[in-house]
């Protein structure tokens, strides 16, 4: 053969290369590639997880913001209701106080009227008594000393009886 080409040696070279290929595949290429693939997969998973976490965080943030807005509305609503309730309560209290005041005033008026009537009546009686006393004094002015004497007698008589 030209250039000393030998098929037997070509086949021996081939056998040698097949052995070398198997060695490299099983001891170097395969394990290193597996490690690299696993690491890539791990980074992909981490990336995926980070993306998912970021999405979850964004979603949670959005949810919290929505909820916060809802809570704000709820607070406003509650505030309005409380204000309304306070206003109603105040109105009721004012009304009740007004009623009470009216009742007290009415009662006081009635009492004042009764007292006035009683005082007038009492005054009438006193006046009558004064008039009677005065009349009596005028009528009995002359016999006052006598009367005094009789009084003393009556008083002394009483002490003795006791």
């Amino acid at each position: 053969m030209p250039l000393n080409i030998d098929f037997q040696q070509i086949l021996l070279h081939l056998l040698n290369f097949v052995i070398l290929f198997a060695i490299l595949y099983f001891f170097l290429y395969g394990p290193v590639k597996k490690f690299m693939d696993d690491r890539t997969e791990q980074y992909k998973r981490m990336d995926e997880k980070a993306r998912k976490d970021a999405e979850d965080a964004a979603s949670a943030k959005s949810e919290y913001e929505t909820r916060l807005a809802e809570v704000g509305k709820e607070i406003d609503k509650e505030k309005k209701a409380a204000r309304r309730s306070i206003a109603e309560q105040t109105e009721k209290s004012l009304y009740a106080a007004k009623r009470e005041a009216e009742r007290i005033i009415d009662q006081a008026n009635k009492k004042a009227e009764t007292d006035r009537e009683r005082i007038i009546e009492q005054a009438g009686e006193d006046i009558a008594d004064m008039v009677a006393d005065a009349t009596e004094k005028l009528v009995l002015k002359s016999s006052a000393s006598e009367s005094y004497d009789s009084f003393l007698e009556a008083a002394l008589g009483g002490e003795r009886n006791e």
């Binding site: 070279h13 040698n16 290369f17 070398l20 060695i23 490299l24 001891f27 170097l28 394990p31």
Partner: peptide, 16 residues
């Protein structure tokens, strides 16, 4: 070639 394969085998086994 056989010597190279031997060297590669030793290197690969040690590395593995």
């Amino acid at each position: 070639a056989f010597t190279v394969t031997g060297i590669v085998l030793v290197f690969s086994v040690i590395a593995r």
